[in-house]
Amino acid sequence: MINFEHVLKVFKNSWTALYDINLKITSGEFIFLVGPTGAGKSTILKLIYHAEKPNSGKLNVLDYNLHDHIDDNKVAELRRKIGIVFQDFKLLNERTVYENIEFVLHVTGTRPQLIPEIIISSLNLVGLANRKDFFPYQLSGGEQQKVAIARALAKEPKILLADEPTGNIDYKGSAEILSLLKTINYNGTTIIMATHDNVLAETSKKRIVSLENGKILSDGV
C-alpha cells in the first residue's frame, strides 16, 4: 500500500532530512513514527501525501508512483484517498463543526444530497454529533482534534495520516484520541501516526518505526 525504497530527501537549503529510507506499510496496519523533533517524521508523512517529492529512490502510495513526475490532478486524486490530521487541527474558525466538514465534502466533489448524512455519521463516529453547531473555539483541544478526525473520515480514506495529533492536547484527551484512532484502524483504515511521545506509542503495542536524524533506527512491534 505504501512502499519507500532507498528514499532520499534533501531540502532546497541542502539540508538532508531523510537518508535511504526503506519502509513498507501494508493495508490495515497501525504504525507509529517516533523520534525527537527534527528526526524526519513530518517529512515522511509529507512524502506520502506528496507535499514533498523524494530526491531519489522509489516511493509508491496506493499505486501512484510518487518518484516520477505526477500531474496536479493525480495528486489531488491521491489526496482524496488519504485523510490527514495535524497538531494544530487546521479547522476553519469562522465555520461551525458541521460547516467545516461540509466544506471539505463540497470541494472534493461529493454529491450534495449525500453530504448531510455523511457529516452526521462521521460526527457520530467521534461522538460529537451534539456539537455540530459549535464553532471550533467553543470546543476543547481534544474535541477540536476529534472534529478534524471526523472531517478526515468523511471521505472514507484508505489511509489516515496523523502528525502529532495529541501534541496540543492534555493527557486524558490524548488517550481518547488514541483509542479513537485504534477504533478507526480496527474498522479497516491504515493509520500512520507521527509522535515524539515514546511512551504513548509503546503502551499501544503497535508497530513502531523509530527515526533519528533522518534515519530509521528500529522498526518493529
Partner: peptide, 17 residues
C-alpha cells in the same frame, strides 16, 4: 489562505480552488 490550504490538502482540484 487557510481555506486554500485545506482544499489542497484534502485533494480539491486546482480548478475548484
Amino acid at each position: 489562505a487557510r481555506e486554500i490550504e485545506i482544499m489542497k490538502l484534502v485533494g480539491a482540484t486546482s480548478a475548484m480552488v
